[in-house]
Amino acid sequence: MIELDRAGRSFKVKRNVVHAVRELSFTVSAGEFVGYLGPNGAGKSTTIKMLCGILTPTSGKVRVAGLDPSRRRTTLARRIGVVFGQRTTLWWDLPLADSFELIRHLYKVERAAFTARLGELTETLDLGGFLRTPVRQLSLGQRMRGDLAAALLHAPDVLVLDEPTIGLDVVSKAGIRDFLLRLNTERGVTVLLTTHDLGDIERLCRRVMLIDHGRLAFDGSLDDLMATAPGHASIEDVVTRLYTGPGTT
């Protein structure tokens, strides 16, 4: 905050300390599919950035796959995959296939393993029709499928998803949901999902964590979450009630 004196000749700056997250503690076990919810500004993105090693916490400890993300970021990158729905990790002017080839080199994936994995992802995510298309020419649904494939080419143990279905049509969204569910149930990949689309949570997550003002407001099963509201409330009603107080709709 900046203050002027009455004559408007001088000023001083007051610094306000804002804790993006505070006293936040949770553990996600191998093979879980966890939804991480919160209103804008609640601390979700800060949490994700700490888990990925982009930000370093001012206190406390973070461990992902047994590693300190801020100290072992390069090593951790080979153990996790990250998808940001509003930002792509693909090269904008290159064909999708060329982006995948560059990612192979970045992660030092052996050619045979890469070819097998890409073939499987191409079939599962239906990428074949646009592998040679520049990323900038892809539809949003096609790009999201490409980003998912890119995050999985090095076979990560953990997948962190930030709004992976944002802006997608119903068909594209259903396809990605089905893919993620099979990835978790059949391959045992641990998934942490942040989203404002509560349909994603209902269809994918067995456990839900809610963060509000940097603190964990709820951690439990989806059934336990729904039980916090009486009657036949929708998940939107339940989440809104938790954030705005009992009796508010």
Rank of each mutant, 00 (worst) to 15 (best):
P134I: 07
T46P: 03
D162Q: 06
K108Q: 15
S172A: 15
S70C: 14
A77G: 05
L131N: 03
G175M: 12
L127P: 07
G119S: 11
V64L: 03
R71G: 13
V171D: 11
F84C: 02
E101D: 15
A65W: 10
L51S: 07
G128F: 00
V158Y: 13
K61C: 09
D169P: 07
V171A: 12
L153T: 01
G66E: 12
G81C: 04
L96I: 06
G128D: 10
W91R: 04
V170F: 09
R79D: 06
A42H: 09
L152W: 08
R79S: 09
V109F: 07
L161P: 05
C52S: 14
G43D: 04
M144Y: 02
N40L: 05
V160D: 02
F100N: 07
R73F: 03
D162K: 12
H105C: 13
S139T: 14
L148H: 04
R136V: 04
L96T: 09
T165E: 03
A113M: 10
P69F: 02
L140S: 12
R71F: 05
L67Y: 13
F100R: 02
G53R: 12
L138S: 10
Q142D: 10
W92G: 03
E101I: 08
S59H: 03
Q137N: 14
P69T: 11
D162I: 10
P156K: 08
T46R: 13
L67M: 14
M50E: 01
G141K: 08
D157I: 08
V62F: 07
W92R: 14
D178E: 11
C52I: 12
L102S: 13
D93R: 14
A116F: 05
E101P: 04
P164E: 11
D147Q: 01
R63E: 15
T47W: 14
P156L: 06
Q86K: 14
V82H: 00
I166V: 14
I166M: 06
L125G: 13
S70L: 01
E101A: 15
A116D: 12
G81R: 02
F114A: 04
E163Y: 12
T88S: 15
D147W: 05
T74M: 12
E163V: 02
E123I: 00
R73P: 01
I54M: 11
S139Y: 05
D126G: 14
P39R: 14
L76I: 04
S172G: 01
K44M: 06
R143T: 06
R79H: 07
L55V: 01
Q142R: 11
R78S: 13
T165S: 15
L76E: 04
T74P: 01
A112I: 04
H105I: 06
T58E: 15
P164R: 09
V171Y: 08
G129K: 11
L168E: 04
L161E: 06
R73Q: 15
F114L: 01
L118D: 00
R177C: 10
P95W: 11
I166P: 02
E120F: 08
V158E: 10
R78E: 02
L67N: 03
T46Y: 05
V109Y: 05
L102Y: 13
T75G: 13
L125D: 06
L140I: 03
G85C: 09
F130V: 12
H154T: 08
L161Y: 05
S139P: 05
G43W: 08
R145L: 00
